[in-house]
Design a protein around this nucleic acid. Structure first.
Lengths: 152, 152
DNA sequence: TTTCCTGCAAAATGTTTGCAAGGCA
DNA sequence: TGCCTTGCAAACATTTTGCAGGAAA
């Protein structure tokens, strides 16, 4: 079963990253990781808590996400309204996303022109740079269901 | 006095846009516009309220920003932490920004590769697209004062 | 054993809503 | 005049903090 193997591998890899970062591998953190992996789409703090079945508290989610983002273990994805979603970070690649406004299904964007942007910013005297690039839209399946609803 | 003329012109133009959008030109709205023009840097809702000298309420700022963003009269700039700032929108140009993390001084980025991004998203089946691109850094003067502080 | 994490409760923030009064067109 | 806006108060939602008990290393 390839996918299960991948899942286990992903869990193991992330556990390693947690402990390498000098953090403790606790039950709550493992559960959060599993939920993130299984969701296959970025989740908000309360979605995470909702899927916890009482295994951890909302406060723990806030605190965990803060540390994980800080250590680069998860990515924070900022929605247009300022809310954020979290997804397991790719171990090595810096990337951006296309996010469905309805279901939050997310695809990585392979190319990143952040370098150009930062070079430009640098030439304007800015230092300590970072950037955010996100594309929002409606994915195929959400579009279909919206259409179906209209035609009912 | 060229700059004063520009200021008046900018006010007048924005007032026109408000009324063209079918909105009423009220005292609160005019004050908000003037504050935004004079600030020369994007402001948060509470910064706006703080500069109001009691001419309008915080709630009015929220409601006004909502309508103005909706009508394209102001731009919402999302910070890395999910908070937002508001700036008068350029009447015609779509653009992005370099924002100083410390003082929020902002420069427009002339080029926008949103087209490419959206074309790619479109090829992946997404519709109804939009995008956010922002670059964050520390501007020259904030960097200087940080250094000065260190060397005190 | 020591230090880090967690849950609970509560505080602090930030944002939205309802409603009556007032202002713009 | 009629409808849009506003302010105030209060409801709501979201995020942060303090602290004591429990768990990882």
């Amino acid at each position: 079963m390839k996918s299960a193997k991948n899942r286990d591998g992903q869990i193991a890899a992330t556990v390693t990253r947690i402990s390498t970062a000098g953090l403790r591998v606790t039950g709550a953190r493992q559960s959060i990781i599993e939920i993130l992996i299984d969701a296959k789409t970025p989740l908000s703090v309360d979605e995470l808590e909702a899927k916890s079945s009482g295994r951890f508290d909302l406060v723990t989610v806030y605190r965990t996400m803060e540390v994980f983002v800080d250590k680069g273990i998860v990515d924070r994805i900022l929605l247009e309204d300022g809310k954020s979603l979290f997804a397991l970070a790719d171990a090595h690649e810096h990337s951006h996303h296309i996010i469905c406004r309805e279901c939050h299904k997310t695809e990585r964007i392979e190319f990143c022109m952040g370098g150009e942007l930062e070079r430009y910013a640098s030439s304007r005297g800015f230092s300590n740079l970072s950037h955010t690039i996100e594309v929002f839209g409606v994915c195929v399946s959400c579009k279909k269901s919206a259409k179906a609803e209209l035609c009912e």
